[in-house]
């Protein structure tokens, strides 16, 4: 089992208090938080932690900004001859 899977299982002293979630665990689930896919108690733990942890708040901000920047990456432009072919196909398409 890899280290983050181990820490995810929270072996060791029971962590019944949501605010005891560690930064290492936050990093594993922060995308699920952004997606709104966390169960209620984990979401609360994340928010309590974010309120007091600058490091994780900055990590989350970086994640949000990288999502934005991903959206601005130019997609493959179509090769001109291919675009021409496509337009030709459209123009010569006649409904049956």
């Amino acid at each position: 089992m890899k280290w983050w899977q181990w820490s995810r299982r929270r072996s060791g002293p029971p962590q019944s208090r949501p605010e005891d979630i560690s930064c290492r665990e936050i990093v594993l689930i922060v995308n699920d938080y952004v997606e709104g896919a966390l169960p209620v108690d984990e979401r609360e733990a994340v928010e309590m932690h974010l309120n007091l942890c600058d490091g994780c708040t900055d990590y989350l901000d970086q994640l949000r900004i990288s999502i934005e920047l991903t959206g601005e990456v130019p997609t493959d432009p179509l090769a001109p001859e291919f675009e021409e072919e496509l337009c030709f196909a459209f123009r010569s398409f006649t409904r049956p």
Binding site: K2, C23, Q62
Partner: peptide, 26 residues
Amino acid sequence: APVDADRFFGDGHRWAGHWASSPRNP
């Protein structure tokens, strides 16, 4: 791992699992 393990305090440290070297504020 999503982040290099050495950016967090290791097991045994009183803040095990917390940022040792935290990410830059964008």
